[in-house]
């Protein structure tokens, strides 16, 4: 009888382990996340030349910032600022949605940090990113 109970303990441990594996994926296919992704994807076509010219760059906290407004004609600067703030609003929403969508609002900061590193890693060469407060060309 004791043996039986012991094997039950092991079985439940194995089961718990497989739950851990099942929980190892983050859910990122909620309607809210898909909507943010679509909005960001659309905006990226407009942002792309600004990344390439160095007008904007990736920050260390997973957002973007205007790096060199003089790389943009004066008449377009207002539009550029609008694009940057819209992008940052979407990114902040994205990090929040991933955390809350997985039942852990407190993960938002960790999600943001993870994205910060991945955006920079996947950035094209020639783009700028922030490192310890300084702009670096990739």
């Amino acid at each position: 009888m004791k043996k039986l109970l012991l094997s039950f303990v092991f079985a439940s441990m194995i089961l718990a382990n497989s739950w851990a594996n099942a929980a190892a994926d983050l859910e990122v296919n909620t309607p809210a996340i898909s909507a943010i992704k679509a909005s960001m994807q659309k905006r990226h076509n407009q942002l792309s030349p600004f990344y390439a010219s160095g007008a904007i760059g990736l920050t260390q906290d997973g957002l973007i910032a205007v790096k060199d407004a003089s790389a943009v004609p004066l008449k377009d600067r207002g539009g550029l600022n609008g694009l940057v703030s819209a992008e940052n609003a979407d990114r902040a929403k994205l990090y929040k949605e991933i955390a809350t969508g997985n039942g852990h609002p407190e993960w938002q900061g960790d999600v943001q940090n993870t994205f910060a590193a991945r955006w920079i890693d996947k950035a094209q060469s020639g783009w700028f990113y922030q490192n310890a407060g300084a702009w670096v060309k990739k």
Partner: peptide
């Protein structure tokens, strides 16, 4: 925080965006 899963998710989303 599932760091590896988050990286995977981030990669997927960044690739799409």
């Amino acid at each position: 925080f599932p760091a590896a899963a988050a990286e995977k998710a981030a990669d997927k989303i960044i690739d799409e965006v």
